[in-house]
């Protein structure tokens, strides 16, 4: 089945849509857990975008084996740099999510609620 759109464009649209859903969720919900889930959606969407920018038309995974010889690699392998960078992005996203969840636990212990309306100290 062909849609007429290049594969990387479909992936870019998917990733950006996911990021927009996450942004909407982060800004409209008042529950801290839902805000964290919104952040995770933005994160995942941008990872898809990053991987998509490395795709080369008709390319395959950059692993040299019987199916992809060293000589053919420069023509048929996809760009390996975004794939390597997205590992960094995933680790940083995981770290930020873990610290946010830790703060959520502390905030719940302090006020016995997860609604962000209960925390007015830093509100102007």
């Amino acid at each position: 089945m062909t849609t007429g759109l290049p594969v990387s464009t479909i992936l870019l649209i998917t990733g950006f849509c996911l990021a927009l859903i996450g942004l909407w969720g982060m800004l409209t919900h008042r529950n801290i857990m839902r805000i964290i889930i919104g952040f995770a959606l933005i994160d995942t969407g941008l990872h898809i975008v990053m991987v998509a920018t490395g795709y080369i038309t008709g390319g395959t995974a950059p692993i040299i084996d019987r199916a992809l010889t060293t000589a053919a690699a420069t023509e048929r392998a996809i760009d390996p740099i975004p794939s390597a960078l997205v590992v960094t992005a995933i680790v940083i996203g995981f770290s930020v999510t873990a610290v946010m969840l830790g703060f959520a636990i502390r905030l719940y212990a302090a006020r016995k609620t997860l609604s962000i309306d209960a925390f007015t100290e830093s509100k102007w």
Partner: peptide
């Protein structure tokens, strides 16, 4: 997305990595 054109060949740095790594 509108301004993005799918790559048809490796960027120079990527081509360097792909040939040098093996």
């Amino acid at each position: 997305v509108g301004g993005y054109a799918e790559l048809s060949a490796l960027r120079p740095l990527a081509a360097q990595y792909v040939t040098q790594a093996p």
